[in-house]
Design a protein around this nucleic acid. Structure first.
Lengths: 208, 208
DNA sequence: ATCTTTGTTAACCATTTGGTTAAACTATAT
DNA sequence: ATATAGTTTAACCAAATGGTTAACAAAGAT
């Protein structure tokens, strides 16, 4: 029998536990005791390795939110076609979010909790979202007459919305549509095709 | 000079205050003292009018979430064309959410906090979302050959996503795009046109 | 006037919660 | 073996927080 957790050093078990608890309950809802229990250690040990709740949360949040943001840049700042970018974006995020469904909710929740404090940290680092190149690419394609004349910001919003929202709203969506977990995953898998298709239809020039 | 709040009876001021605080901070983050301060009364008076935090929250949550859900049904179960429904849906939600931008985040947050407890209440009442007629309408249009063959669930998801997500993610979106409040509102106003357009483009048959 | 009901408050209480301390345990080096 | 440094715990503490109480004020009712 393989001990799942006991064999990891306490310091790591704490971090894993903190991730789990913070992701599920958010900063305000998480209890240090919950984290200690989840890690199978004494509460005092939390403070031995990580000074206090704020620090621990910040650590978890930074590490998690950097799974979330940098993807955007790597894709958006590449030299691919728009169509390729749509596909890559949805593909990568659906894959990531199926493993980590709480992630966007967690990030948004935190941004909501403390819009200035945190965002200034993320938004000034290397990993802040940089949509400029992407937006400019769209404008360029418009000028070249390759796609319809549309506000690039709506394009970006639509892509983000259709990709991220279903995960944020999963519990609601699943109930409304009467789906189980398996069905939901299947539906998200399909999104890898349907979302880029919708995006392309929304910019492709209409045949006269 | 018109006294904004002092002239309302305490019972109502409390409810207003509770709405504000709960919507901003969620159940876990809200403090009874915050609500009392916001209402300009003593903390004990909260418990005089509303038994405890749980009860007060439930009241606020029910009243707010019923602003959120019934719209879906009124629109989706009408006899309008799909195009009209797209327009009405976005129009109404953008209007509502501009007044009440925290609403969707609040609802989703709560669903996340307690997926079973709460949802059973909403989901069994008169106001539970009933997307069936809408989904069937889409299937019918497909059979009639009026629109493309697409999974109706994706249509519904896309509409919900593009309408609601920008509000849920407003703080993030605003920073990423470097917008102030005014600009954000302007952008949302534009969505009333761009979102239904995208929706129609995604189902309209392509010209051969 | 005074009795009763309703509204409001300050002070208080019990529990929860983040955080500390001092002691004990473990391993490693001497 | 024993000294030392790192690890872990039980017990404890102070602040925050939800909730109660008892007294007081305001407003009707008699």
């Amino acid at each position: 029998m393989v001990k799942k957790k006991k064999d990891l050093p306490a310091e790591e078990r704490i971090l894993d536990a903190a991730k789990k608890v913070f992701l599920e309950k958010g900063m305000a809802g998480a209890r240090m005791q919950d984290i200690a229990n989840e890690a199978g250690i004494n509460k005092a040990l939390l403070h031995y390795y990580y000074r206090d709740k704020e620090k621990l949360f910040e650590l978890v949040f930074m590490s998690e939110s950097q799974k979330f943001f940098p993807k955007i840049n790597r894709i958006f700042e590449s030299d691919e076609t728009l169509e390729k970018k749509f596909h890559e974006f949805v593909e990568e995020y659906v894959n990531e979010l199926r493993l980590n469904p709480y992630l966007p909710w967690f990030v948004l929740n935190e941004i909501n909790r403390d819009p200035d404090g945190f965002l200034l940290k993320i938004m000034t680092g290397e990993n802040r979202p940089r949509p400029m190149k992407f937006l400019q690419q769209i404008e360029k394609e418009i000028k070249l007459g390759n796609i319809r004349k549309v506000d690039p910001r709506h394009i970006l919003l639509n892509l983000l919305s259709m990709t991220l929202f279903p995960f944020i709203a999963q519990p609601m969506v699943s109930r409304i549509l009467g789906m189980g977990n398996k069905e939901f995953e299947q539906l998200m898998e399909e999104r890898k095709k349907t979302v880029p298709a919708v995006m392309m239809d929304s910019i492709r020039k209409k045949v006269q």
